[in-house]
């Protein structure tokens, strides 16, 4: 019973807390840029506003366009069931696999890219094409980084990976661990459409990627997609925080352990959110055709992580 309750709570934290994370990042960015910025609760207000507006749909679209927001939010809600947020002892152990998680993310991207093409505008097509290019090129890095982690943990289950890391005192002295972290961090930036790969705040034709794909969406559809993007960002940061810096996450279901988990999660997320905001303030967007170089760099990091394991074992 407790297990189910904790599982539901950690799912709700990810799903409901995600827009807050976006709000915090925007706020920190605004402060760093010398603006006052909107409040951290602004993303919730935006979602509410979108929900009361009617939807305007292009005449050229098909049912794929109308189905996509539900698929995208469905995949992200499913992903939130997979990622351990507060505890590794959740009830949904049958979903516990990191490769499944990556494919669930890819499924959402697949449908978004289709929807981008559906309205028949050049912007949508451009966004879809670029999004798929970045998603495809990020894929090898993700898998090799997973390989590097799985080698140490002896498992591709997320819970097991984290449980192994918690008990490892020399975790941060392991070169493979740090290399895998940096490579996955770069991939997380690319996958969630942050600077320097994509600028979530832009609506300039030539630079937008994710925003170009969803340009035709409005009303409740847009609300679902924005919510899904926020969840995706939240989950990627949780993944980075919990897999690479597993301290504080509840390995058992004891109330004290869970309480520590609830306290440490905001700290870890806060650190990652601030560093993301600092990074986004300091970096300019890369030209699109420089992105593959960034991704191949991250691939080399991941490969080095694997190599270091084999040569140090």
């Amino acid at each position: 019973m407790l297990r189910i309750a904790v599982t539901i709570v950690q799912w709700l934290v990810a799903v409901v807390g995600a827009p807050l994370l976006v709000g915090v990042i925007r706020k920190v960015k605004a402060r760093l840029q010398g603006r006052r910025g909107a409040g951290v609760w602004q993303p919730y207000a935006n979602l509410r506003k979108l929900l009361v507006k009617e939807v305007v749909i292009s005449e050229n679209t098909s049912w794929v366009f109308r189905l996509t927001p539900y698929v995208v939010i469905g995949t992200m809600l499913l992903a939130a069931c997979i990622v351990p947020v507060l505890t590794t002892a959740g009830a949904l152990q049958m979903l516990d696999n990191i490769i499944l998680l990556m494919y669930v993310f890819l499924l959402g991207t697949f449908f978004l890219a289709l929807a981008g093409l559906d309205a028949g505008s050049s912007f949508g097509g451009m966004g879809s094409s670029r999004e798929m290019a970045i998603a495809a090129l990020a894929e090898p890095t993700i898998m090799i980084a997973i390989f590097a982690i799985a080698l140490r943990a002896g498992s591709t289950g997320l819970n097991e990976m984290i449980r192994r890391s918690v008990t490892d005192p020399l975790l941060l002295l392991n070169p493979g661990h740090l290399l895998a972290f940096f490579s996955l961090f770069i991939v997380a930036i690319a996958e969630t459409g942050r600077l320097p790969v994509d600028n979530p705040a832009t609506h300039l034709e030539l630079t937008m990627i994710h925003e170009a794909m969803i340009l035709e969406y409005s009303g409740r559809y847009l609300a679902l997609i924005e919510w899904a993007s926020a969840i995706k960002l939240f989950l990627f940061l949780t993944l980075l925080g919990n897999v690479f810096f597993p301290w504080g996450i509840a390995v058992t279901l004891q109330p004290s352990a869970i309480a520590i988990g609830i306290v440490t999660l905001p700290i870890k997320m806060g650190v990652l959110a601030v560093s993301l905001a600092v990074l986004e303030t300091g970096l300019a967007k890369l030209r699109l055709f420089r992105v593959p170089e960034l991704l191949s760099g991250s691939f080399m990091l991941a490969l080095l992580a694997v190599v270091s394991f084999f040569f140090l074992r």
């Binding site: 890819l106 991207t109 697949f110 890219a113 289709l114 093409l117 879809s128 798929m132 290019a133 998603a135 495809a136 090129l137 990020a138 894929e139 090898p140 993700i142 898998m143 090799i144 390989f147 691939f299 490969l303 694997v306 190599v307």
Partner: peptide, 19 residues
Amino acid sequence: ALCIAALALTAGLSAACFV
């Protein structure tokens, strides 16, 4: 390791291909 990378890249590219 290289085969895993190749298979992963294949998976990503095939998603792009069928989109």
